[in-house]
Design a protein around this nucleic acid. Sequence first.
DNA 1: GACCGATTTAACTGCTTGGTACATTTATCA
DNA 2: TGATAAATGTACCAAGCAGTTAAATCGGTC
Lengths: 226, 226
Amino acid sequence: MAKASALSRRTAAGKLRQSSWTQDPEGVKRDILDAARQEFVENGLSGARVDEIAARTATSKRMIYYYFGDKEGLYRAVLEAMYDRIRSFERDLDLASLPPREAMVRLVEFTFDYHVDNPDFVRMVMVENVHHARNLKASKTIAGLNRSVVEVTRETYRRGVEAGLFKTGYEPLDIHLTISALSIYNVSHRATVGQVFGYDMCAPEIIARRRAMTIEAVLGMLRLDG
Amino acid sequence: MAKASALSRRTAAGKLRQSSWTQDPEGVKRDILDAARQEFVENGLSGARVDEIAARTATSKRMIYYYFGDKEGLYRAVLEAMYDRIRSFERDLDLASLPPREAMVRLVEFTFDYHVDNPDFVRMVMVENVHHARNLKASKTIAGLNRSVVEVTRETYRRGVEAGLFKTGYEPLDIHLTISALSIYNVSHRATVGQVFGYDMCAPEIIARRRAMTIEAVLGMLRLDG
DNA sequence: GACCGATTTAACTGCTTGGTACATTTATCA
DNA sequence: TGATAAATGTACCAAGCAGTTAAATCGGTC
């Protein structure tokens, strides 16, 4: 496939090999991580095959073990890279400048869109849950990371309550979980929903509809008159 | 463990075996399905080991292949049994006798509680999604099954709209998916939420809180004044 | 220009694991 | 009671697969 791209150094049939290559640790690592992400996302942790990951790279299996130790180490590296990415995105949110209600809507939209746009992340989280978050536990980097979203939620909710717009008494984390649940489901359960109900959750108009409903649900939950 | 129960016929150390056993096809099948469910729920499809399943039964590995063909056949059988169970539960719902709003609340409560009470089902669905619902596709039994919940949702929603209680314009299936999303998440994402936020989604008081919020969110979404 | 650690290749290994061959026992029924 | 089919136990196998060995090559340094 796209193996003969940037890192191309393989010969056609193994013969005639020019036996010349350039050192590129970072490039090789990125190449491996990329191939691994695809494979883990596609087949899960147990379902993924190291040989298959190696085949997807421009390098060899040996390098996987050289840089990542073992299969789980590689998996953990992929997981960490994904969480890093979501953290960097969260910084872009600037809700303080918006009035509470609009800020909350934007927070929901952001969360919803992030999951739609990053199905790989959703699937990795799913896989991680199947494995009881064992590798999340083992990772030092990730601990105390996602807290920031909760802080943003807390602040937005607080302002809304203060302005007399939102019902009081909720835990900010619970609000975040509600938003998460409604956002993740549409991606994580595409396959079974598609199969059982014949409903294509990839279709743009359906995604748009579920997005609107998610906003309504969250605002409805927070609304005062009940 | 509980291996030496109803089907007990194993000798202590293999020696001294009395070489006497009774035929019990249905019992053996149930025994295998039970052991398989535990293993698949615990480790997923690829992560599950046939030898481990056999070890959990009172019978031998040979019987698994005798009755279920191969690993995937066994997995499919477990999946089908789970969907059978949820279908039988759905019959217990009698919402027609309740006013629309109360009926909707009860529907949400039922769905929420079912998932909390059947984490195995939730995990199997998760595993199935990791595998792109490939086995759901392969199963004849399951197709056109879960439709009944949607019909119940449709009818309840219709009555609510007619009574001037609910906002118009929603798809019944979308309402069901919203309820499902909020119900499933608390079970399916226990591990990662527990790890990332230190939040114990098994704790009764937290479950109760999320249950209440789920009801609020769904009713809030359906409410007229917006 | 030779030395050295970092990087990379190619071939290999041994255990795991899904699946099977074959013998044996149990129930059925003529 | 003895023939036959269904059910079960035991031992085994071959492929799959994570992980390794050993040697070669590269990039810099003195």
